[in-house]
């Protein structure tokens, strides 16, 4: 029982990070119908931005309060990652809009390779560490022989994910920006006719996706303490799986999918074999696509004529 609870905590933390990245996939797919394969690498770049910023904040500025430092890092990482993703959309995707459907996707794959290699060349191929932060834990259960612990880091990750999901759900459902976004999603041409600036809305979608990826990147760095140029790939593909599982295009679906993938991966490693955890996670992708292509919370695709 104690071990089950402990693994549940591990799985929820991992799933929260996947969920945050998955939102970026899902929003972009929803609005322009494109799988942004570079999103995982944008996440990786954000972890590096967070790392550089964290080292600057703690050494050059000499800020010792870890929470203040983290808050600064989070804002800076969100800003620069958003800027990067905005630029990527302008340079690599917008000129291809209206081209054949595969063109921006291939461009995204190219962008993904570019980002990973750029970081490898400029930051080096090795793991870059940061000092461990927030190492305190809370003891939840103590059966004498086994303690169930919840690290503050894990609490932060789950709380931040829940807060952001709430915030973004509000943004999409209740604000004019969200309305514009949903309108573009349903019919881009009609939205344009009705006076919505479609290019602007799409840009903002990329910016929001990147900001969430930056939160995930910062939390990832805080949780694992290292960043590596290759880190974009596997978390990126898993988050994509999460988006598909939750129903691509659906915000709550992305988070639900992320949590499920995190839990499946963790419990699979805990009770079966850890070697096959990625096989288990990706089998879910195949099974979802075969039996439930619209995902858990997605709507069946309406044929646009």
């Amino acid at each position: 029982m104690e071990i089950f609870v402990q693994q549940l905590i591990n799985g929820l933390t991992l799933g929260s990070i996947y969920g945050l990245i998955a939102i970026g996939y899902t929003m972009v797919f929803g609005i322009i119908g494109m799988v942004n394969f570079a999103h995982g690498d944008v996440f990786m770049v954000s972890a590096f931005i967070a790392l550089i910023c964290f080292l600057l904040v703690t050494t050059v500025l000499g800020i010792t309060s870890i929470f203040l430092a983290l808050a600064i890092v989070l804002v800076v990482a969100m800003f620069f990652t958003s800027l990067l993703n905005w630029a990527i959309e302008r340079v690599a995707y917008r000129p291809l809009r209206g081209s054949f459907r595969l063109a921006p996707m291939i461009s995204a794959i190219g962008m993904s390779i570019f980002l990973a290699n750029f970081v490898q060349v400029t930051q080096g191929p090795r793991n870059k560490p940061v000092p461990p932060m927030i190492t305190d834990v809370i003891v939840l259960m103590d059966s004498g022989s086994y303690q169930v612990t919840l690290a503050w880091k894990q609490v932060i990750i789950m709380v931040v994910t829940a807060a952001l999901l709430g915030g973004f759900w509000y943004l999409v459902q209740k604000t004019s920006l969200g309305r514009a976004q949903r309108a573009c999603e349903q019919d881009r041409k009609m939205a344009a006719l009705l006076g919505i600036n479609v290019d602007h809305t799409i840009s903002l979608t990329f910016v929001i996706g990147a900001a969430l990826a930056a939160v995930a990147g910062t939390l990832y760095l805080m949780y694992y303490g290292v960043a590596n140029f290759a880190d974009g790939f596997v978390p990126g593909v898993k988050a994509f799986t999460a988006a598909v599982l939750g129903g691509i295009g659906s915000l709550p679906g992305a988070v639900l999918g992320g949590l499920l993938i995190g839990l499946i991966e963790t419990f699979w490693s805990a009770y079966f074999s850890i070697e096959y955890k990625d096989v288990a996670a990706f089998s879910i992708l195949a099974i979802t696509l075969i039996f439930m292509p619209q995902g858990l919370l997605g709507r069946p695709e309406v044929e646009k004529v």
Partner: peptide, 8 residues
């Protein structure tokens, strides 16, 4: 990078 499951 994640060994928490394993280490649990």
């Amino acid at each position: 990078k994640d060994f928490r499951t394993l280490l649990t």
